[in-house]
Every structure is written in C-alpha cells, then in structure tokens.
Simulated scan of single mutants.
Amino acid sequence: MKTMKNITYILFVALALSACSNKMTFQDSSVVPAASGDVKVKKDKNDNYAITVNVRNLAEPKKLSPAREVYIVWMQSDRDLVKKLGQISVGSGMFNKSLSGELTATETVKPDRVFITAENDAQTLNPSTEMILTIK
C-alpha cells in the first residue's frame, strides 16, 4: 500500500512538472536545411518565463549567402509586437562538431512565437525579413 502511494505521488509530481514546461520544435529551414532545434518555455515561481533556445547544425552566419555576422533570437507575444531575446552563437571545434548553440532568456510574458534571423549587426532593433528558423 505504501509503495502504491509513493508511485502515485511520483507520477503526480512528474505530471505537474511537465505541465509547467512547454517544448516547441523549430520548423524546417529553407535557408539552412540541416538546421534544427527547439524552444523550452517554463513558468517560474515569480510568474516569469524562462525561455531556452537550442539549435543544432546551424551554419556559421558568415557562410550564408549573402554572408551575415550574427544570429538573433526574437519572440512575439500577444502583448508585444516583436522583442529581441539576444544573440545566439554557433559553436564548432574539436569538441563541438554539430554547430550547436544555446540561448537562455527570462521574460515577463509568454512567447507565442520564437524565431531566429541572420543579421549584419548584433545591435539591430528590428528583425530582417529572412527567417532562418521559426516556431509558430
């Protein structure tokens, strides 16, 4: 009987934790076809949203045609038009062959949409029209 209560409790906690986190997968990219990734959104105890963006097989921006300098992650919510979350760096090297990167940000509103653009300048305030990866 005690074992059944423990199992029920563990299942309840696991379900509750998974309900707090929302994972979305990026759509295939026509600009960088091998690129993939996901976005995890988790509401914290202060009613903020922790947003984690993971990408894989994302070509270095200088290898795009035309070449760009940086990748920028943006979000859109029902309250805001578009907001820049930050720059995502793509790592490669001896220990990272997958051209992967990660960005973590905290926002007060839940994103309805997250997307990545390639930009000429990291200081840009508006996204370019060519999206690299997007979640709708």
Rank of each mutant, 00 (worst) to 15 (best):
T129Y: 00
T106Y: 07
I132R: 03
V114G: 01
G101N: 04
E119T: 06
E130Q: 11
E130K: 11
A118P: 02
K110P: 05
T124M: 09
V109P: 03
L103R: 05
P127S: 14
T108D: 02
G101C: 05
P127E: 13
T117V: 09
G101Y: 04
T104E: 08
I132S: 10
G101P: 05
T108F: 05
G101A: 05
L103D: 09
A122Y: 15
T106R: 07
F115W: 11
R113I: 14
T129E: 00
S128E: 08
L99D: 15
A118S: 07
A118H: 08
T129F: 00
T117G: 04
T106D: 04
D121L: 03
D121K: 13
T106F: 08
V109I: 09
T106L: 09
G101D: 01
T104M: 12
E119L: 12
F115Y: 12
E107L: 03
E119Y: 07
E102V: 07
T124C: 10
K110I: 13
V109D: 07
L125N: 00
I132H: 13
V109G: 09
I116Y: 02
A122K: 15
A105E: 08
A122D: 15
E130T: 09
D121G: 06
A118Y: 03
T117F: 04
T104R: 12
D112Y: 01
D121N: 14
K110A: 15
N126K: 08
T104S: 13
T124N: 12
K110G: 15
S100T: 07
D112S: 04
T108M: 02
E130R: 11
